Simulated scan of single mutants.
Amino acid sequence: MKVGLFFGSFNPIHIGHLVIANHIAEHSDLDQVWFVVTPHSPFKKKSTLLDNYQRLEMVYRATKDYTKLNPCDIEFNLPQPNYTINTLAYLQEKYPTYQFALIMGEDNLKSFHKWKNYELILENHHIYVYPRVSENTIETQFDGHKKIHPINAPIMELSSTFIRNSIKEGKNVQPMLPQNVWEYLDEMNFYK
C-alpha cells in the first residue's frame, strides 16, 4: 500500500485541502492520502491552534465520505515539537508493509533543505509536490530529482489563516469549508 502523508495543522481543514488531497489520491500512484494532524509545528506559534482533538474531529468530518482520504493522529503521542523524520520512522515501524510518501506545496520544497535529516527523508521516501502561487519560482537543488514528483493539481489560493481571520471579522466563510466542518465550527463558536 502506498500512502501519501499530507501534514498540517488543519486549523481548520478547508475545501482547498480536500481538492488537493483528492486530486493526488485520484491522479497519482498513491492508494491513500492520510491527513496527519500536527499537534505543534516547530515553525508555528502554538497559541493560535485549536485543541488537537477538535482539529482531528474536523478532519474526520471532512474526509469521512472519501474512501481514499483518512485522518491520522499519529503525531499526538510523539514527543513535541516533532519532526517529520521521526514520524516517518515511527510509521514505517508500525506499518512495515506500507510505503510512505510526503505531500507538500512547492513553497515548502523551497525550504526543504532546512528540514531535520532531509537527505534521509529523500533517500527513503518519495515527495509529491503540488503547485502554489508564488511571485518568483526559485530554482532548487531538488529540480528533476528522481524521488520528487510535481503534481499538476489545481492551484488553491485559500488558507486557514484567511478563514480564521474572516470568521473573526464576522464574514461568511461557509463556501470555503466542507458543510459538516462548517456546522461544527459554527456550533462550537470557533475562531470568533
Rank of each mutant, 00 (worst) to 15 (best):
Y191A: 01
K45S: 13
A101E: 04
Y130W: 14
F112L: 14
R55C: 04
V3A: 05
Q80S: 14
N52H: 11
H23N: 13
D186H: 09
E75V: 01
P79D: 10
S41F: 10
R61Q: 10
G170H: 12
I138P: 04
G144L: 09
P12H: 11
K44G: 08
Q141A: 15
G16T: 03
K147C: 06
H149G: 02
S9H: 02
E187M: 00
F190I: 07
V36N: 03
H17G: 01
T161W: 10
P175G: 03
Y98T: 08
K146R: 14
Y53V: 01
F76I: 15
H145T: 10
I13L: 13
M188S: 03
Y130E: 02
Q92C: 08
S134C: 06
F100P: 01
T87V: 07
Y118K: 06
W115G: 01
T48P: 00
N52C: 11
L49M: 12
I15K: 07
A25T: 05
R132A: 03
V33F: 08
T97W: 07
Q99W: 02
K64V: 07
D65R: 14
S166A: 15
K64G: 00
V133N: 06
P42V: 11
T161H: 05
H125W: 06
K46R: 12
K46Q: 14
H23S: 09
Y60Q: 12
P81R: 03
D65E: 15
I138S: 09
I74K: 09
Q54V: 13
P178I: 01
F7N: 03
K147V: 05
K168I: 06
L122R: 01
F142W: 06
L122A: 02
L120E: 13
V181S: 01
K94H: 12
T38D: 06
H113E: 13
Q32A: 08
K192P: 00
F43D: 11
P154I: 02
N189V: 10
K94M: 13
N70A: 13
A25G: 05
I103M: 08
A62Q: 03
D31A: 12
W34R: 08
G144W: 07
K2T: 06
E26C: 08
Q141F: 11
L158M: 12
M176L: 15
P42Y: 08
L122F: 02
H113C: 09
L50P: 00
Y95Q: 12
N77W: 09
L30F: 07
M176V: 00
N172S: 07
K147L: 12
D143F: 02
L88R: 04
M1F: 12
P12E: 10
Y53A: 05
L78W: 03
